[in-house]
């Protein structure tokens, strides 16, 4: 019993220590923004490996998710004779929830894990230490551009996911199942609010991009510099990002859509 309490206390303490280190790391990373802005090249390269490399998985998944929503929504709605509102259903679920959340989960799996592995290996092969000895701050030079790239790519990816999904829903809904195309779009436009739905969805995805990039970079930076340590850190990135995304989604949803 005492051992268990000791273990509990110890692990609580270490997790707070880690959170503290993570926060310090985040502050350092953010403070590097000014030194990155004059060098857009650094950012561009990272936009490529973070954003462009996630483009395909995001658009393809978005298309399929939209198509499934179209199918499922149609069968459910047609029971009530409300097939015309298919567009609303597809768009609302994508823009409010599935777009930001699923694209952030995919982003954590695709780009986040890659970032952690990259940074962890850089640490294991003394590249970060080497940079420090060359009087180059690895946080500013390595972390900040990647962080910014993640922050900027995430809303774009989420918007793409939702847009492609809505088109996918339309392909299935009106192309295959015969929902009137005009009704699909006009009902959608009547119900989806720009500020309440679109902007809130974008805010969500920015928050998710922030958290996922932070977790991915910090786990890599904090990884034990061995192959096992890096692989564990990569796993932690995906798991912790998923938890944070879903938890934050709940909080943000209550804040944004709670009082109608």
């Amino acid at each position: 019993m005492i051992q268990f309490l000791q273990y509990l206390g110890e692990s609580t303490r270490t997790s707070f220590t880690k959170l503290g280190r993570g926060t310090y790391f985040l502050l350092q990373t953010v403070s590097g923004i000014l030194s990155v802005l004059p060098r857009p090249r650094l950012l561009l390269t990272q936009m490529y490996s973070v954003g462009v490399m996630s483009f395909l998985i995001i658009t393809i998944s978005g298309l399929f998710v939209g198509m499934v929503l179209g199918l499922q929504g149609y069968y459910t709605l047609s029971d009530f004779g409300a097939e015309e509102t298919l567009g609303v259903m597809v768009a609302a679920s994508l823009v409010r929830e599935l777009g930001p959340v699923v694209s952030a989960l995919l982003f954590a799996g695709r780009a986040g894990s890659a970032l952690t592995a990259e940074i962890g290996l850089m640490k294991a092969t003394e590249q970060l230490s080497g940079m420090e000895m060359m009087a180059v701050d690895p946080i500013k030079r390595i972390m900040t551009p990647r962080f910014l790239a993640g922050l900027m790519s995430m809303p774009l990816l989420a918007a793409l996911f939702s847009a492609v999904g809505i088109i996918g829903g339309q392909i299935i809904g009106s192309g295959l199942l015969g929902v009137d195309e005009g009704a699909y779009w006009s009902q959608m436009q009547a119900s989806i609010d720009f500020r309440d739905d679109i902007i809130n969805g974008v805010i969500k995805s920015i928050v998710f991009g922030f958290v996922t990039s932070w977790i991915a970079l910090f786990e890599g930076y904090d990884a034990i510099p061995t192959s096992e340590g890096v692989s564990r850190a990569t796993t932690r990135t995906v798991v912790n990002s998923a938890f944070s995304i879903l938890g934050l989604d709940f909080i943000l949803t209550t804040l944004m859509f709670g009082d109608d």
């Binding site: 483009f55 790519s153 774009l156 918007a159 492609v164 779009w185 119900s191 720009f194 679109i198």
Partner: peptide, 18 residues
């Protein structure tokens, strides 16, 4: 990539929402 993301945002703003 950036252009298509922006197009996606515009699509959501103009075609999907009110």
């Amino acid at each position: 990539f950036v252009a298509s993301g922006v197009v996606g945002l515009f699509f959501l703003a103009l075609q999907v929402s009110n």
